[in-house]
């Protein structure tokens, strides 16, 4: 599983990265979490609000920071 956090380095982007890492750890997922800070690449996903959560190149959520619990639900689907 390839997880990307899209964001240009604002505090919400860091919060989303932290929450996602927690969710991955709690679910014991074999996932690679990387941050994508390049704005041109971020725009390639069609996202206008950061941060965004991308799993296997599919945008799951954008524009807010969900709770760890909610991220776990998104990742388990």
């Amino acid at each position: 599983m390839e997880i990307k956090i899209l964001g240009t380095g604002c505090s919400n982007c860091k919060n989303l990265e932290k929450a996602t890492r927690e969710a991955v750890a709690e679910l014991n997922l074999d996932a690679n979490v990387v941050k994508e800070e390049d704005i041109v690449k971020i725009m390639g996903y069609g996202v206008m609000r950061t941060p965004a959560l991308v799993v296997d190149e599919k945008v799951l959520m954008y524009g807010r920071v969900p709770s760890v619990k909610e991220i776990k639900e998104m990742l388990s689907k």
């Binding site: 240009t8 604002c10 505090s11 919400n12 982007c13 704005i39 971020i42 725009m43 996202v47 206008m48 609000r49 950061t50 524009g63």
Partner: peptide, 17 residues
């Protein structure tokens, strides 16, 4: 519209694009 200054760039790009 929900707006945060940290999203100003993606928003600007999205509009212009």
């Amino acid at each position: 519209t929900p707006f945060c200054s940290c999203s100003a760039i993606p928003l600007f790009l999205g509009f212009i694009e």
